[in-house]
Every structure is written in structure tokens, then in C-alpha cells.
Design a protein around this nucleic acid. Structure first.
Length: 506
RNA sequence: GGGUCGUUAACUCAGCUGGUAGAGUAUCUGACUUUUAAUCAGAGAGUCGCGCGUUCGAGCCGCGCACGACCCA
């Protein structure tokens, strides 16, 4: 018998003896009539040791988080999704037989309690149990009640345990739901229509990234998990849906880090007859409004850094940012060769076909990005790095595009959409010709998308916002794994060896 | 891919110069009918991540591997 099974064995013994006493260990008939949260205000008018005058009966269900046992009485802390309350168990009230079954209860069990409300002599609202029900017997011990679960690996691998014992973790995921709900509400109120477009695409487009590949047997064809929904959402603009959005998963077959998970949640939205400047206003309003609703203020702290989300936010062109933040001379930026030379001097390695636009973008990422703490829109991205964005009317070497940076991280990317099918076709062709030696990136000409544009797409602007990064910002989470319920990790060798298994065979 | 750090009881962690493994919580037994990190007395619990090496002797030293964290690309 392995060491871990010692506790398991003790609990299984308890479970067996409870069963012999006639207790159903996994009863499914108990229906709690009350949420713990709604009982707590009833304590206001009670004096210590006073019972609620009405003598009303309440019933709750939840997990036992702590127990303080005496010989013939006990207190248990019970948690449900709304809060925590103390129950008082007394042998006199329950009777000898029921009290015997209570003695086999453990921290971690899920139980149902029916009883009356009273305040203890130290003034804590409690339920004096009249009837008790075992709903689910727990066989594994919970982590240390005082220190909790600090090992991040276990928190990610066994999120269910993390959620049981780490209130902060529960709060982050509740906030995540709230944030996504508020985004939907905002966009619905602005007449956007939520749609679903393919997750499996024959040509993975809309971004440059390595896709996950899969195979469809019946059609005998390769498919790719999408790296972006962009090209499908814009087909809907062609179709006449003038405001669309999608909140869903993208998949990129690249490295993992505190800011990257292979599957991540993206908001993309497209608005006909709008420009990227309209989206600047929309973005400021939506994100600052959500922050205020979720955090009660537009001033937040992210990992010790103060951030002010009060609009309006700073706007700069990429050239301005390179001059003002990185201190690069205007003279250099105006000269393609000098830009290339500077990038080389900074140790940036560029592909052969890369031009000054790519060099500027790389310089920006190296010298500017991490310094943009308060929200900053960077505009006028080089056309070279923006294959789907509309060229600027005055200066066709740049596009009508912005990226939004907060706490040094890219949070959003938006542009006025390119709707000229001829220009789009040429840029796709250039993109494919310029493909690097990286075979895993999959540039293939999406001829159907060009055909769609040939039918006529209205002028429009579109934006993508990384939901996980937004949630990180608004919940002060240091790692993307803190805001994704089940982040990807390498397989756990321990379980494969059978050590964490419940099997009795070991 | 590179570097640094980590992996010891279910949980949180100690473990000296290399000499057969410790605490608190949790668990078990006993006492205890208003406690709240309950208290008191006692007990059980470990393949020291895995493997190889050095050594009379390795949790500790060396090499390799696995997993994780952080930084860099």
C-alpha cells in the first residue's frame, strides 16, 4: 500500500463504516433551500446566544472546510458558492445514532444541513443543525488550511483543488466571466451581432503564426485550427452583416510563456462605415468602462505598477514613439538605409526580403513596447507588416492601423480594413513570395477571400482584443495561466506512473 | 533553444562540514456540549523527483534525465 493510500485507506474505512450505519455516501435527494449569502444578513438583529425569533428552518449544502470537534458537539465551517457559514452540531439535538454518523465526517465532505439560526456567545451567526445529510464523501485530504495551496504547478494541474481552497483564484475566474459578459453587453448595446465562424479552416489566415494541423477523414483533407477568425468575419461584412463580433478561441502552435497559451481567447469585431479612429474611441470607452465596473475605479495597480485607464489615452505614430520613447533621430527614421543599419547595429536579425517597415517594427518592439505603461495607441504601422490593413491615403507606406499597449504589453490590434480586392491579392502574393524558410508557417493564398472582396466589402474597421491579457490586467494576474482555468502543461509523469492513481492494485 | 533556481510526509516548509529523516497543519486514538489556526495527551505516516557515478557511507557532492518557476531568444 503506497504512502498516499494511507489517508485514502483511512477514509475508505470510514466510508464503509458509515455505509454500514445505513448512510448513503452519495445521496442525491438533498435540495438546499437557501444560499449561505442570504442567511448572513439575518444576524444583524440577533444578540449573542439568541435564536432567531421566528424559529424558521433553513437548509444549506456545501463543503466542510474546517471542523472543531468536542466530545458531544462540534462546529463546522461550510462553504457554498455564495459564502461560508458555521454550523453547530449537538449530540442532544441530533440523537445518539445520527451523532455517531457525524463522527465519521471529514474536512472536504460535501454535506447538507437543515436547522435554525442563532448567534453563538462570541457573536457568530451559526446554524444549529436539526438534520444532517451526507451528499458526497471525500476520500482525499485538502491542502494545509492555513498556508493553502502555493505550489503553482498543482494549482494549474489540479485546478479543482485550487478552486476549493484559494478564494483569490475563484475571484479571478468570476471576474473573467464578468469581464466577458460586460464586453458582450457593450457590443450588443452598440448593435453588434455575435457570430460563430469556423475553428477548423482549410487555409489558416488572418495572422502570421504556426497553426495546429488536423485531418478530416471523410473529406480526405488537411484542416487547421484557426489562428484568427478575421477573414471569415470580413466575409460577413460582404454579406451585409454590418457589425459583427466573435469571442472565441484561437490556436497557435508556438511556445508557452507567462503571456502565451497555445489556445487563447480573442475578441474580434468589425464595424462597417467606421475607421480605425472610431475604434480608438470605442476601445477607450469599453475597456475603461469595464475596468470601472469590475474594479470600482479606472486607477489600477498591475504587479506593483500604477496604471491609469481614464480616457482619453495617449496616441502616437510609430515614428513618434521611436523618436520620443526610444530617442531615435527623425533623420534616421526618414532614411530607409539608415533604419536598416540601425536595426542591424541593435542586433536585430532580419530576413533577406525584410524592408525598413519590418526593421522599424522590430526596433519598436525592442526599444519602446515595454515602456508603454499607461494605455497608448500606436498608429501608422508600416504597410509591410500589415497585410490586411488599409493604406493611409496620404502616405501609402503606412496603414490606418493602431495597436494598443498597456503595461508594456500588446492588448489590441485594429485597423481600417483593406477592401480593394486587387491590392489584397497583390499583398497576399507578396506575403507568399516573402515567406521565410519557416515551413510551419502556412501562407496559402485564400482565393475565396479575394473573391468575396470582389463582390464588394463596405469600408470598415476591425479590431482584435486578447481577452486573457485583458483579464490579466484587470485582475492583477502575473501569468496567463492564472486566468485560464486549465492551462496547457506537459503531461504529469507522476500520474502516468500510477502514484497519484486511486487504484488499489499498487 | 540558452541561463538561473526549485522538486524532502497529504499540505506548508526545515535539514549544519557527507554519518541511517524533522516541525507545524492534516490524519488516527483518548479527554472535552459555544469553538473559530479550539485545547490537552499519545500514535501512525517518507522510493528525500528519476537514473548513473564518486565515497566505507549521499537528502546533501558530480553527471544525465523529467517536471515546474523566472529571465533571455
Amino acid at each position: 500500500m503506497s504512502e498516499e493510500n494511507q489517508t485514502l485507506a483511512q477514509r475508505k474505512e470510514k466510508a464503509e463504516s458509515l455505509a454500514q450505519l445505513g448512510v448513503n455516501l452519495y445521496s442525491n435527494t438533498f435540495k438546499p433551500a437557501n444560499a449561505i449569502e442570504e442567511l448572513l444578513p439575518k444576524a444583524e438583529n440577533l444578540e449573542p446566544q439568541e435564536k432567531e425569533a421566528s424559529g424558521a428552518s433553513y437548509s444549506i449544502a456545501g463543503r466542510i472546510m474546517a471542523m472543531r470537534k468536542f466530545g458531544k458537539a462540534a462546529f463546522c465551517s461550510i462553504t457554498d458558492k455564495t459564502g461560508q457559514i458555521q454550523i453547530y452540531i449537538k449530540k442532544d439535538i441530533l440523537g445518539d445514532e445520527i451523532f455517531e454518523t457525524f463522527k465519521k465526517w471529514d474536512i472536504g465532505d460535501i454535506v447538507g444541513i437543515q436547522g435554525i439560526l442563532f448567534k453563538t456567545k462570541v457573536g457568530e451567526l451559526s446554524i444549529q443543525a436539526r438534520e444532517i445529510t451526507m451528499i458526497s464523501k471525500s476520500l482525499r485530504p485538502l491542502p494545509d488550511k492555513w498556508h493553502g495551496l502555493t505550489d503553482v504547478e498543482t494549482r494549474y494541474r489540479q485546478r479543482y483543488v485550487d478552486l476549493i481552497v484559494t478564494p483569490e483564484s475563484r475571484e479571478i475566474f468570476k471576474k473573467r466571466v464578468q469581464i466577458i459578459h460586460l464586453i458582450r453587453e457593450y457590443l450588443n448595446n452598440h448593435d453588434f451581432m455575435e457570430v460563430e465562424t469556423p475553428m477548423m479552416q482549410p487555409i489558416p489566415g488572418g495572422a502570421t503564426a504556426k497553426p495546429f494541423q488536423t485531418y478530416h477523414n471523410a473529406l480526405d483533407m488537411d484542416l487547421y485550427l484557426r489562428i484568427a477568425p478575421e477573414l471569415y468575419l470580413k466575409r460577413l461584412l460582404v454579406g451585409g452583416f454590418e457589425r459583427v463580433f466573435e469571442i472565441n478561441r484561437n490556436f497557435r502552435n508556438e511556445g508557452l510563456s507567462t503571456r502565451h497559451n497555445p489556445e487563447f481567447t480573442m475578441l474580434e469585431f468589425y464595424q462597417a462605415y467606421a475607421t480605425y479612429e472610431d475604434l480608438i474611441t470605442l476601445t477607450e470607452e469599453m475597456i475603461s468602462g469595464i475596468c470601472e465596473k469590475v474594479n470600482g475605479s479606472m486607477h489600477i495597480s498591475y504587479q506593483g505598477t500604477e496604471v491609469d485607464l481614464t480616457p482619453p489615452w495617449t496616441k502616437m505614430t510609430m515614428d513618434e514613439a521611436l523618436m520620443q520613447v526610444a530617442g531615435i533621430d527623425a533623420e534616421i527614421l526618414a532614411d530607409d538605409e539608415k533604419v536598416m543599419a540601425l536595426a542591424a547595429k541593435k542586433g536585430i536579425q532580419l530576413e533577406k526580403q525584410a524592408g525598413p517597415g519590418k526593421a522599424k517594427t522590430e526596433l519598436f518592439e525592442l526599444e519602446v513596447e515595454e515602456k508603454l505603461i499607461n494605455p497608448t495607441f500606436i498608429t501608422s504601422y508600416p504597410t509591410e507588416v500589415s497585410p490586411l490593413a488599409r493604406r493611409n491615403e496620404q502616405d501609402p507606406s503606412v496603414t490606418d492601423r493602431f495597436e494598443l499597449f498597456i503595461t508594456g504589453r500588446e492588448l489590441a490590434n485594429a485597423f481600417s480594413e483593406l477592401n480593394d480586392p486587387m491590392d489584397q491579392l497583390q499583398r497576399f502574393e507578396k506575403q507568399i513570395n516573402d515567406r521565410g524558410d519557416d515551413d510551419e508557417i502556412h501562407p496559402e493564398l485564400d482565393r475565396d477571400y479575394v473573391r468575396a472582396l470582389e463582390y464588394g466589402m463596405p469600408s470598415a474597421a476591425g479590431e482584435g482584443i486578447g481577452i486573457d491579457r485583458l483579464v490579466m490586467l484587470l485582475t492583477d494576474a502575473p501569468s496567463i495561466r492564472d486566468v485560464i482555468l486549465f492551462p496547457h502543461l506537459k503531461p504529469e509523469t507522476r500520474l502516468q506512473d500510477g502514484k497519484g492513481d486511486t487504484s488499489d492494485a499498487s
